[in-house]
Design a protein around this nucleic acid. Structure first.
Lengths: 342, 342
DNA sequence: CAATCGCTTGGTAGCGCTGTCAATATCGGT
DNA sequence: ACCGATATTGACAGCGCTACCAAGCGATTG
């Protein structure tokens, strides 16, 4: 024999409908599309729901409607402040909306990403936000066949899966180097850690700018696969100085490395910027208040997250954004650490 | 008339069962409790599921079983690095398990927290991780009546709702001050931002230590409700110097403030620690590599997150932890910025 | 040899909601 | 007063899975 209802006191949609004197379907519609009801019934259902403290059962809704109101978010790291800002933007945009977030951490592995993607899509998310433009071929194929809005964030590039929001890491790095060149620096070193695809493109931008200026020298480049940290910034900077003692500036692929380099300069009693200019990337909050203040490339991370989430929502509500690819740009923040030579 | 099945090709449990030559119920059991099956059927169902690429429908499962495999996590901030580490611990602990996370941001508001709590609990989470021990009376009541493991994290205190893992912010701050006193500092300032309950308790610890040493002076305390930042650290430190120019040390409620204070010292050409000792709180990564290296109080944030998640899981699997309240302690990291006077 | 036990397996119904389509109410125009 | 069009409402069945209970089965026991 089958089970009996165990919780006879629970408030279901049927109870609300009964109290409001309408059919369950009408009550259901109230929660999904209130405009479809006549004003009278709408008010009746609303007060009935409030009186009973009704909360819809999302599992039942998801089962019956074959979709969820969950937006999947795939980011490579939870620790990196960069993603903290993006996430904050996403959460802010979704706050108060019907949608919620399912967050997963790919740990910079596109295989892990593919695994998580399959997991997500099996649950029919309402939308998807995924980091970067380098996915496995299988991931791409899966995403192209799935029927929900997808936004790739953090960078822009060719062939978006659906939508895209970010900026050009190549251009941003190139602009940072152009700034150093304009300030009169010539032997500009490069410090890179983790070397994920976006960092690689920053390296490409550096290489392009240096080559154009006929100043490129592989000796100026120090990179590692190790995850970034301030301590690592100091270590890499020491390595760079050992390889190329005559450098007059250093471009760091992120602000942690830049801060580490600054501390290492202090340790060696090298004056910044007189003996060594430093430029970071991302413009985290501390860059503007260090001593000396540190130059960096500002990226609009919060806006990126916020807009990405809004693009998903707008699409879901039938108002897809005019542009599928949004370039948020960047700005080179020129501060004391890269002041003009002499 | 009712709708027809729209997706005839979809792989459901019934298909797996058919291919495996067992009843749907047996197949269902395989996914929930494989040990209950005989070895033969287990293998058959397993290979059938793999062959068809079966992925269970979580909505249907949640609806039928009246529970979910989601652990709710309520934290006050996404930006604060402290919570990033905790989150990483939680995600790591749940990685590979059947459980997933629903994350929400209370923005340091216990009213917001209560709202989110109701939202969460209405969906019958498998467990709950909530920050701190200061909830509204209603929140407490709700949590006490709900039937799922709950872990309060970040601090320990009396009357846990269910389980608890953290450390004493009072003791930690007191130990930091004791360290400064032992090093010979006497006029020790206090810098506080945001002033959430845990920061308040750090202030209490400071006050207790200073009072015991007969050195307490309200002029030494500068606090603000503004969220913390490195820049703010510099500003508050400047305020403190204006109020009490004769201080010889400063205790900052977090490392960002400490870094800001360090930069402000450099700007004023005050030698650290000769003219001004600095101690932070949390021991973020950069504290060990700044110049000079900065003393701090190490807190075990990753472990806190990891253990909290494991406590929830273990309880769910019928192996509740021996101790409901876990004190992870702290350690005072003594570095150059608080080296002995003279 | 029947009774008992423990393990595995299956049948039935229902979890709470919504898609589909039909039915009814409302309305303006002729 | 009639017609068609539009807005509102309702009936039905089913989304995919699992709780509950019962039955099958071989082994053990008195």
């Amino acid at each position: 024999m089958a089970r009996k209802r165990i919780t006879p006191g629970k408030i279901r949609l049927a109870e609300v409908a009964k109290l409001a004197g309408v059919s369950p379907i009408t009550a259901s519609r109230f929660f999904r599309n209130p405009e479809a009801l006549s004003a009278g019934k709408r008010a009746r259902v609303e007060s009935a729901a409030k009186e009973l403290g009704y909360v819809p059962n999302l599992a039942a809704r998801a089962l019956a409607s074959q979709r969820t109101e969950v937006i999947g978010v795939l980011i490579p790291s939870l620790t990196n402040n960069v993603f903290a800002d993006v996430l904050r933007g996403i959460y802010d945009a979704l706050d108060g909306s019907r949608y919620s977030i399912q967050l997963a951490n790919t740990r910079y592995s596109i295989l892990q990403e593919e695994r998580l993607l399959r997991l997500f899509l099996a649950q029919k998310p309402a939308g998807l936000i995924i980091t970067g433009i380098n996915q496995t071929a299988d991931s791409r194929r899966i995403m192209e066949t799935v029927d929900c809005p997808i936004v790739q964030i953090m960078e822009v590039g060719p062939a978006p899966i659906d939508m895209m929001i970010g900026f050009s890491h190549f251009d941003a790095a190139k602009a940072a180097i152009a700034h150093l060149l304009a300030q009169g620096y010539r032997r500009i070193g490069f410090l890179g850690a983790r070397m994920d695809p976006r960092v690689q493109r920053r390296l490409d931008g550096y290489r392009a700018a240096m080559t154009e200026a006929a100043l490129f020298d592989p000796q100026l480049i120090v990179t590692t696969a190790i995850p970034t940290s301030v301590t690592l910034g100091g270590t890499l900077f020491a390595d760079l100085l050992a390889k190329a003692p005559d450098i007059d500036a250093v471009f760091c692929v992120n602000d942690d490395l830049a801060l580490g380099a600054l501390f290492e300069c202090k340790r060696r009693h090298m004056a910044v910027p007189e003996q060594m200019a430093i430029v970071g990337f991302n413009d985290l909050e501390f860059m503007a208040s260090s001593e000396p203040t540190l130059s960096s490339v500002r990226t609009n991370r919060y806006e990126m997250g916020r807009n990405a989430a809004m693009m998903v929502i707008e699409t879901l509500e039938g108002r897809p954004p005019a542009e599928a690819v949004v370039d948020l740009g960047f700005s080179v923040m020129e501060r004391q650490s890269s002041a003009r030579r002499n």
